[in-house]
Design a binder for these strands. Structure first.
Lengths: 136, 136
DNA sequence: CCTTGACCTTCCCATCATGGGAAACCTTAT
DNA sequence: ATAAGGTTTCCCATGATGGGAAGGTCAAGG
């Protein structure tokens, strides 16, 4: 099958498939005489794997490691699990950061009248916050 | 004061200060005869404002709007509040997405032995997930 | 046989916010 | 006078993705 069909079936855009090939994440497929890339069902599986990994927030480099583990039939499941759990912690950390920002901002907004008057504690806070406070 | 000191006092790197100037986020400061940028205390306030805005997850374009609102003494606080609350919703949405990824992955990891054996439900899921399922 | 439309190829550019580093210049203190 | 450190501009890199141009290819239908 051509790249378009591989893209449709895997959920990875043709653009990205070519890119993944260029960075060595996936192996270059065979080509027709006219240089068209030819994919097999197995390639689509690999692309789906990559897609799933990306959807779960793994970077392409992490995805590369996961692919290697996937292909290494003799690796210990512990290796996969530790990589996954480390990622879980990262995701939760980032989620908590975003939540903290939202909470801070929501708190500031609570004290903002939100009417025609110009006074606004939100901007007042922005203007008054020192670099040290900003970190806290 | 020079750019280095403005950077230290504002918590914005010298590199970024120049960049903000180049994109018109902040106004170009005066220069010495030797072309050194010269900042006043007020400029540091502005930079802190930008820093605070960035720390709360606003993009530079959003920060530009906030700066405009800040400088416009006659704007209604409602304008600021609605902008802020829209951002709060975005932040919470992103946080929820990350949390969902973490939960999914944590769930998969629960079923992974995490020992010397090679079987791993995590990778099995990655390999089996179809594009349609991935969205769900 | 030829046209048309849909596909494919490579290549370059853009995004967003930030940092790195080079080469040249300035300033200040010794 | 010299050394150290700050500043200037300029170019490049990141990570993952998309847009688009210019040109080649394939299949269907006239």
């Amino acid at each position: 099958m051509n790249i378009g069909q591989a893209a449709t079936r895997s959920g990875v855009s043709a653009k990205m498939i070519r890119y993944y090939e260029s960075i060595g994440l996936i192996t270059p497929p065979a080509r027709t005489a006219a240089q068209y890339r030819v994919y097999a069902d197995e390639d689509v599986h690999t692309l789906r794997f990559v897609r799933r990994s990306r959807d779960l927030g793994f970077s392409l480099e992490e995805t590369r490691e996961l692919l290697a583990l996937w292909r290494d039939k003799s690796r210990a499941s512990a290796d996969v699990k530790s990589l996954a759990m480390a990622h879980v912690r990262e995701l939760e950390e980032k989620a908590a950061e975003l939540k903290a920002m939202a909470d801070t901002l929501r708190h500031l907004a609570t004290h903002c009248h939100g009417d025609h008057r110009p006074d606004c504690p939100i901007l007042a806070d922005f203007a008054a916050t020192s670099p040290a406070q900003a970190k806290a």
